[in-house]
Design a protein around this nucleic acid. Structure first.
Lengths: 146, 146
DNA sequence: TAAAAACATACTACTGTGATAGGAATTGTA
DNA sequence: TACAATTCCTATCACAGTAGTATGTTTTTA
C-alpha cells in the first residue's frame, strides 16, 4: 500500500473542481492554483475520468466537472482511482492470499491496517473537503483571492 | 507511506524468534522456515538490531534474540525500524508541514490515515502474534513440524 | 582447526514515481 | 473561417526505492 503525490495532487484539484459547481475548471487553472506540474495533472485527471470520478468538457472554455455530486464521491474512490486498490502488503495483495504456504499470524495485522485505512478514506467526501477548504480560505486567502 | 515485503519478512522472522525464547534463532534457520532469501533477511535483522528490537549472538550456535519481552515490542516498532516513519504523504512527511503555501483541507485526511495505521500497528505486540501463530501451527503444522 | 554464525559492503535488475515533450483532436469565440 | 484554448494521446526520461545477489571478514563454539 502506498499514498503518493498522485493522491495529494488529485485531491487538491478535485476539491477545487467541487467548489466550481457546474462551470468546468481547466487543468491549467488548477495547476497554477496549487503549483502542480500541468502535464502531470493532465494525466491524473485522465485517470480520474477513466474511473468515472470527473467528466471532461473539451474545447475552448472547457475543463473538468465532477461526474456525481460532491457528497457522493469519497476520498477512497479518488485514491483508488489514482493509486490502485488499497492493499497493505504482498500478503493481502495476492488474490490467492498469502505468499507463505503455511499460515502466518502477521496476515491478520495487514488486513486490519487496510480496513482502517479504507475506513478513514471512505468516511470523507469531496463535499466535506470543499467545505473545509472554504473555511480555510476565509482565514488565510491565497494570492489569487486577495 | 508504504508497507513492503520488508515488514512482511521481518514480522515473520520476529514471531519465530519470539517463540524461541532465550535460545537464539539464526538467520538461515528463519529463512528456510519462511522461504525468505537468506542474505536479504540478514539485512533486515541488521536493521532491527540497529533499532534495538533484537540482540545478536555472534559465532557458532549464535543467532538473534528479542532485546525486550515480546509483549513490549509493538508491530509499529518493527515496521518503523524496517520502513521508516509511518507518514502517509508528502503533506505530512515534511517536518515543515504541507508543501502547499496555502492551507489545504486534504492534509487533515492524510493525518487521520496515519493515525489510524499507527493505532492498528501499535495495538498488536509480538507476544500476541506469537500466540496466534502457535494456534495456527497446531491446526496446520508445517513440514518441519510434522 | 573447522564450522557456523553475524557483520560489512558493494553491486544489480527491476519497478514505480514524478515528471517532461510534442503533438492531434475538439470546440467556443472573434 | 481562423484562432486560441482546451482535452486527449503517446512516448520518453531521471531518479529513488525494492528486492535481491555476491563476496567476503570477523567472531565464537565444538
Amino acid at each position: 500500500m502506498r499514498l503518493t503525490a498522485r493522491s495529494e495532487y488529485g485531491l487538491l484539484a478535485l476539491v477545487e473542481i467541487a467548489a466550481g459547481g457546474e462551470s468546468p475548471r481547466s487543468a491549467r487553472e488548477l495547476s497554477e492554483r496549487w503549483k502542480i506540474p500541468a502535464k502531470f495533472l493532465e494525466q491524473l485527471l485522465a485517470a480520474l475520468k477513466r474511473a468515472g470520478v470527473v467528466r471532461a468538457v473539451r474545447g475552448a472554455r472547457g475543463g473538468y466537472v465532477l461526474a456525481s455530486p460532491a457528497a457522493e464521491i469519497s476520498v477512497l474512490a479518488v485514491v483508488e482511482a489514482l493509486e490502485g486498490p488499497i492493499a497493505p502488503s504482498m500478503c493481502a495483495r495476492e488474490s490467492g492470499g498469502c505468499v507463505q504456504s503455511t499460515h502466518c499470524a502477521a496476515g491478520a495485522v495487514w488486513g486490519r491496517v487496510s480496513d482502517a485505512v479504507r475506513d478513514v478514506l471512505s468516511s470523507a467526501t469531496l463535499a466535506d473537503l470543499a467545505g473545509d477548504q472554504l473555511r480555510l480560505d476565509a482565514v488565510s486567502p491565497t494570492d489569487e483571492e486577495r
